[in-house]
């Protein structure tokens, strides 16, 4: 099982949520792939390949955003992919609300939420990826969850 087979879906979900539209997300995904392959030349032994991959993806997103400015949200990322009508309907109830609420979050808070919940990075890994303290990450998560919860009410 290769890195992309194991964690590629998580990486793509992460960059789609970060970018807000699939086109820019695909570019960031490819840029991440190039960076990963370049560093693979040195055959690194990774203790936490998922954390490493997702952090590179996040940094690629930041670089891409600084080059191109703010990404434009074109579509709900959860709309892509093949789902049955029943799945879509079930997801639309809660998922649609959550996705919309996440998209509305301030950028700094949204990034913490996406790295932690979509990427599955721990608080410590999220803090390292974003160059923040763990306390800051926790307080941002707290603020995000309160906002998301109120969006569901």
């Amino acid at each position: 099982m290769t890195l992309v087979d194991e964690h590629g879906a998580a990486l793509l979900a992460l960059v789609r949520r970060l970018c807000g539209n699939p086109h820019d997300a695909d570019d960031v995904f490819q840029e991440t792939a190039v960076r990963v392959w370049r560093s693979m030349v040195s055959c690194p032994r990774l203790a936490n390949p998922r954390g490493w991959l997702l952090t590179i993806g996040y940094r690629a997103f930041l670089d891409s955003r600084s080059r191109r400015g703010q990404f434009e949200a074109l579509a709900d990322p959860s709309d892509r992919g093949e789902n049955s009508p029943a799945e879509l309907a079930a997801r639309a109830e809660v998922g649609g609300l959550v996705n919309a609420a996440v998209a509305e979050l301030p950028e700094t808070i949204r990034e913490v939420v996406v790295l932690h919940y979509t990427g599955g990075l721990t608080i410590k890994e999220t803090a390292e990826a974003m160059n923040l303290s763990e306390g800051t990450v926790k307080s941002r998560l707290n603020a995000a969850l309160l906002k998301l919860r109120s969006a569901l009410e």
Partner: peptide, 10 residues
């Protein structure tokens, strides 16, 4: 519910 929604990976 929020966590489950955000953790969905296609």
């Amino acid at each position: 519910k929020i966590k489950a929604t955000l953790a969905v990976h296609e």
